[in-house]
């Protein structure tokens, strides 16, 4: 009797989960569906109708209209630049906070905590003014260099992970006469694999979808645009608001890498979200 009851509960739970998944993925499904629509007016018909056949003409148009390869290269350049700086900084700073005792450490840690809560909009405009004065608009410098700080979230991740590594490992390396930096690079970093994957993944998602900063620094420099900025600017002007299948095809081209990467690295993603909540 009890077994039957619990099986019924599992079936009910799965049924709810399926419905929820459908609801949550609906915008995605809608995007895919509309990007294959032949008739650009079909989107304005209710009830919505399915595309009659898989029609790739919207994609052809967007590939002809955008220099898609260039856009991917641009976006990846920023991802790699930001990623490299972020990894380097968060390893060093995370190690410092996890392993070295020094006066003022508590204060520095509180500053780190607080820095993650400052509203970006306060710094955004003066930063723009400074970069403009340095003549660096339309370059990736303002988008990449500020990640030298590593980011509070990433530093927390690395720090937590290092605190979980037994100190005896460091000490045996020290016994062999290794310096601090050597110990960090040869003993600790090789064990940081999962956490570094998480940081790379979040950097990728963040940079790929970033809108506010690139739209300020790159606006007007069309050949420097990232995918997101190109999509936003095309949507605002050139495609014409009416041509939804083309806009949706553009959305697909921008979003697909993120969807693929998320499915491929689910564990790294979940680890990142989960550990972000633990800040002891």
């Amino acid at each position: 009797m009890k077994k039957k009851n619990s099986r019924a509960r599992v079936v009910a739970a799965v049924a709810i989960a399926v419905v929820l998944s459908l609801i949550f993925c609906f915008p995605l499904v809608w995007m895919v569906m509309q990007s294959f629509q032949t008739d650009s007016q079909a989107i304005f018909e209710l009830p919505p109708k399915l595309p009659e056949r898989m029609d790739f003409s919207s994609y052809k148009f967007v590939f002809g209209y955008w220099n898609v390869l260039q856009l991917y290269i641009n976006t990846l350049t920023i991802v790699i630049g930001v990623g490299a700086l972020t990894l380097m900084a968060s390893i060093l700073v995370g190690y410092g906070f996890a392993r070295i005792e020094a006066p003022g450490k508590k204060l520095m840690f509180s500053i780190l905590l607080a820095s993650s809560m400052l509203p970006a909009v306060v710094t955004l405009i003066p930063s723009y003014a400074i970069w403009a004065r340095l003549g660096l608009l339309g370059t990736y410098v303002p988008l990449i260099i500020p990640s030298i700080g590593g980011g509070a979230f990433n530093i927390f991740l690395v720090r937590m992970f290092i605190m979980g590594i037994p100190r005896s490992l460091d000490e045996s390396a020290e016994m062999d006469g290794a310096s601090r930096l050597k110990t960090l690079l040869l003993v600790i970093v090789p064990q940081l694999g999962p956490v570094l994957a998480t940081i790379m993944l979040f950097t990728f998602i963040g940079v790929w979808g970033d809108y506010v900063a690139p739209s300020l620094y790159l606006w007007g420099y069309t050949n420097k645009y990232t995918l997101s900025i190109m999509l936003a600017s095309s949507f605002k002007s050139e495609f014409g608001v009416m041509d939804w299948p083309k806009v949706m095809a553009g959305c697909m081209i921008v979003s697909l890498p993120v969807i693929v990467v998320i499915f491929a690295f689910q564990n790294a993603f979940v680890r990142g979200i989960v550990t972000s909540g633990i800040k002891d």
Partner: peptide
């Protein structure tokens, strides 16, 4: 849906 690029 939460990790899609915000523009898209």
């Amino acid at each position: 849906p939460g990790v899609l690029p915000i523009v898209g």
